[in-house]
Design a protein around this nucleic acid. Structure first.
Lengths: 122, 122
DNA sequence: TTAAATGTACTATGATAACTAGTACACATA
DNA sequence: TATGTGTACTAGTTATCATAGTACATTTAA
């Protein structure tokens, strides 16, 4: 389903959260789609079920999925998704941008970079 | 000299490294400038000298400073550093920004975020 | 020459977060 | 009824970071 870097400073459960959000924003996962069970995903990735559960709990807390005992976990309908996805992306940009600012890189340089990226063909 | 966030996920010693790099790339610290001693910086920040030493060792490993027992720690000469640092930061921003673009986030939104970050006090 | 400040190098300990391990129970569905 | 699911614990392990303390060689200035 996706890849995990066990040696990253980012905790595994958070990587799972990121990956699920990514799949949602790419349209791979849509409303009411069923996620892998806690146990099966843990088996797939080769980690403990509790870690997956922690990721799912985090996603439920953010309103991105809902869970039902005995049935499974599913993508939430509604537009909390889009907002969360937006936040997710902006947050991902924030950190390196703050670091760049701190390193003395000018605002203009960053904006120029933004322009170049948004000029690219897809 | 600079500020440390003890509650950050980023280790203190690495924050020190980042801050020193930042001061170098801003031109505050130039070649052969002397850094605060391990002990004095530890006293200033309110942390253990060993933590500062670890940061200095890391900086020496990267060739950014040199140390001399009995004399102190100094910024290395040579500007192979600054350009590499700049590239590294821009590269770190590129990836999440492309992801954001792909997710449909507008250029204006990104530029607005940039403006907000560059408006913040340090 | 001596004292103070510096870097360097250890060992030991504590603290915290992340993860693992195991168990148990309620619910839903085929 | 059996299986798979979420949920909820407790306990233990591991890794990383930070602290604490000590010791020693070198440099510099008093």
């Amino acid at each position: 389903m996706f890849s995990i870097d066990a040696r990253s400073r980012v905790p595994i459960y958070e990587q799972i959260v990121q990956n699920i959000i990514s799949l949602i924003s790419k349209g791979v996962l849509a409303a009411d789609d069923q996620l892998p069970s806690v146990r099966s995903m843990a088996r797939d990735i080769g980690i403990n079920p509790n870690t997956v559960q922690k990721a799912y709990q985090e996603l439920e807390l953010r309103g991105l999925i809902y869970q039902a005992a005995g049935r499974g976990s599913f993508i939430s309908p509604g537009d909390n998704l889009t907002k969360a996805v937006l936040d997710q992306h902006l947050k991902a940009i924030e950190e390196p941008m703050r670091a760049a600012k701190k390193a003395g890189i000018s605002k203009d340089t960053v904006i120029k970079l933004t322009g170049e990226i948004y000029k690219e063909e897809n």
